[in-house]
Design a protein around this nucleic acid. Structure first.
Length: 272
DNA sequence: ATTGTCCCCTGCCCGC
DNA sequence: TGCGGGCAGGGGACAA
């Protein structure tokens, strides 16, 4: 699923629904997701008040009244749905059930189990968070900071955008979209991108991510918001999933290629 | 220290 | 209809 806009949307939904609630009971339906759940995971969650909700890259961090932090990653197919009360029937991929004292229930569902749920201590630098790059909506997201990274990295710009250690939160969809918006060939080596193009790229990244958040993210198959509603930014895609359809700028056919095992969509005329 | 390949897992869609 | 292959919003673990 989920790139920055989807994770941000889920985070906001959880915050609205669960902030200040108290966890009454946690049920694990299996021993782990991508990693095993930590020791005493359930014991550490039960009785806690959910205080603050944050997002870093594609991770959601929920801090409790004892300062421990629940770290969540949705992987490819993870969903976190909030229900007013416990559903009658559970799905076979409902792995973690978090019941609050007011009967509200949050359920983590993840068919592919690439997701992560673990607990951090206050101020702990977890390995998963240790090497994350610049947040697209932070003050550090400037040409001054990012241009040197482009000059140093010896990879294609698509690969650069996908690598979370440079800029965090962009995945396969929004990488293609931002490169189209800024007119950059996804294969272009980062150190050959002129400053004005790099500047246009940064602007395009913020623009597309912001627009996607406003649309509640993009739903291709698995992704839903915590309310169960789908996102609708997929209707605004300019290139992603539009192979052989006509470019919105020049009408020539959009192409699809594979880079590092992932699909890239682009317009060979508009992106140089 | 980087960079490429493989792998984790399930579901869905396509072609035969 | 059934089955095999390929592909899917991610990213860690290796090998070179």
């Amino acid at each position: 699923m989920p790139e920055l806009p989807e994770v941000e949307t889920v985070k906001r939904g959880l915050e609205t629904a669960l902030k200040g609630k108290v966890i009454k009971h946690v049920t694990l339906k299996r021993a782990g997701l991508r990693f095993p759940f930590p020791l005493f995971f359930v014991e550490n969650l039960e009785g806690r008040t959910l205080k603050t909700f944050a997002r870093r890259a594609k991770y959601i961090l929920i801090t409790f009244d004892n300062d421990k932090i629940l770290l969540i990653h949705l992987g490819m197919s993870g969903k976190l749905l909030v229900h007013a009360k416990m559903p009658e029937i559970l799905d076979k991929h409902d792995h973690v059930i978090i019941e609050c004292t007011d009967a509200m229930v949050a359920i983590f569902n993840d068919a592919r189990r690439f997701g992560v749920m673990t607990l951090l201590e206050k101020d702990e630098i977890h390995p998963l968070l240790a090497n994350l790059g610049i947040e697209p909506f932070s003050d550090a997201f400037t040409l001054k900071n990012i241009y040197p990274l482009l000059q140093k990295a010896k990879v294609s710009i698509k690969q650069f955008l996908m690598n979370q250690k440079y800029i965090s939160g962009i995945g396969n969809i929004y990488a293609s979209e931002a490169l189209f918006l800024s007119g950059i060939d996804p294969k272009k080596e980062t150190n050959t991108i002129p400053r004005p193009k790099a500047e246009a790229l940064l602007k395009a990244i913020r623009q597309v991510l912001e627009a996607a958040i406003k649309s509640g993210g993009s739903t291709l198959r698995d992704y839903v918001r915590s309310s169960g509603d789908v996102g609708y930014f997929q209707h605004s895609f300019t290139v992603y999933g539009r192979e052989n359809q006509s470019c919105i700028k020049c009408t020539s056919p959009i192409r699809k290629m594979t880079q590092q095992g992932r699909s890239t969509f682009f317009c060979p005329i508009c992106q140089k």
